[in-house]
Amino acid sequence: MQIVANIIVLTSLYALVASGYVLVYKVSRVLNLAHGELMILGAYLLVATSAGITSDPLIAIALTAVFSIIVGLSVYLLLMREMTGQPVLAAVLTTVALGILLRGAMVLIWGPQQLNVASMLSFENASVVLTDSIRVSTASLWLVICTVVVYLGLLAFLHMSRWGMRMRASGQNPLLAAQRGINLHTVYALAWTLSTFSGSIAGVLVALDSRLDVNMAVIGLKAFPAALVGGLDSLHGALIGAGVIAVLEVLLIHYVNPLLSDVVPFLVLIAILIVRPWGLFGTKEELNRV
């Protein structure tokens, strides 16, 4: 049974990170390859907040959430805004550059060594006994809860609020959205903000669960197959894609070889790209009718 708990926790992690990829892609067709770095930046912001502003874990996390919103908004306003109307490839390459820059900046500021964020915040990551045979860490439990809340919130926002509707509309047909008076910059800024926010939550919880160093940005890369397997523009697809990858990863680690853990997501990625390149629930890119 422990294995089921592990699968659920890993699914939550991948799903939470993947939601960030999906949001930005769904709305602007840009693949944000700096998402892993932005996620880890969220965790480093927590380090900075707890060291410089307050040592109360709850206030520090709340402040980190606010800072992550500011970071997401700044990334759009200062960088990605200029890429609106440019070829998508230019925008994607900009995110690659952003990722490399962020990685370098984080090493410069916080150093290459591992940080124990939980102890800095005096957060006790005790393991919670759910039943006799199932134990999960407190941070993992929070991760599952946050993922559920974020997904319910995002789905409700996208389908019930007017700005959510505008985000879906702009992703499908940006020109028509502009012709109907929807301000694309507002919509894109919203997508980047929400994406960075959910990514930062994931980063903070991962850092609390283990240690924090810059190389953990690779989790972002591992969650990317989850988004792609589900279909890059489908939020519930990302959830299911995350599930597929988590199941395979946990089972292979358990029954075959733990060394496989890093390659599993990419094996699934290659398999899905061959069979169904637009993902399980994604929109098949159509050629324009002439």
Binding site: R162, M165, R168, Q172, L176, Q179, R180, G181
Partner: peptide, 29 residues
């Protein structure tokens, strides 16, 4: 648009992933 000029384009004139009601609602200020 704010001046009051609105175009019905030749192609791709609806948001295909939105329902009919949402297509109307999405544009409202």
């Amino acid at each position: 648009i704010h001046k009051g000029i609105v175009l019905v384009p030749e192609r791709d004139k609806v948001f295909t992933n939105l329902t009919v009601a949402e297509n109307l609602e999405v544009v409202a200020t």
